[in-house]
Amino acid sequence: MTIGNTMAVPLSYYLILSAFVFLTGVVGVLIRRNLIVILLSVELMLNATNINFVAFSEYFHQVAGQVFVFFALTVAAAEVAVGLAIIIALHRAQSTIYVDELNLLKR
C-alpha cells in the first residue's frame, strides 16, 4: 500500500458526494413518516460523514481518520440496537410507527 501518492480524484468531488448524501438523509428524516425509514436516513448521514473521514484520511495521509470511522461504526451499531428496540416497544404500546400519528403528549 503506497499511502504517499497523490489523489487522482480531487478531494472536492468526495466532499460534494458526501454533502449530497448527507442532505438526502436530512430531507429523508424530515419528509418520511415511517420511523424505520427515518433511522435508515440517519444511517445515510452517518455514511456521508464516514466518506468524508476516509477521503480526508487519504488526502492528509493520516490513518486517524479511518480510526474515527470505527468509532462512528460503533455509535451506528449502538444507535440501531437501541432505536429498533424503541420502535418495537412503541409499536407494542401504540400499534403505529408513523410519526404523525404519535401524538400522545398532545392529547
Binding site: A77, A78, E79, A81, V82, L84, A85, I86, I88, A89
Partner: peptide
C-alpha cells in the same frame, strides 16, 4: 446499548 436494547424490547 446491548443492555438498553434488551430492556426496551
Amino acid at each position: 446499548a446491548m443492555i438498553g436494547a434488551i430492556i426496551l424490547a
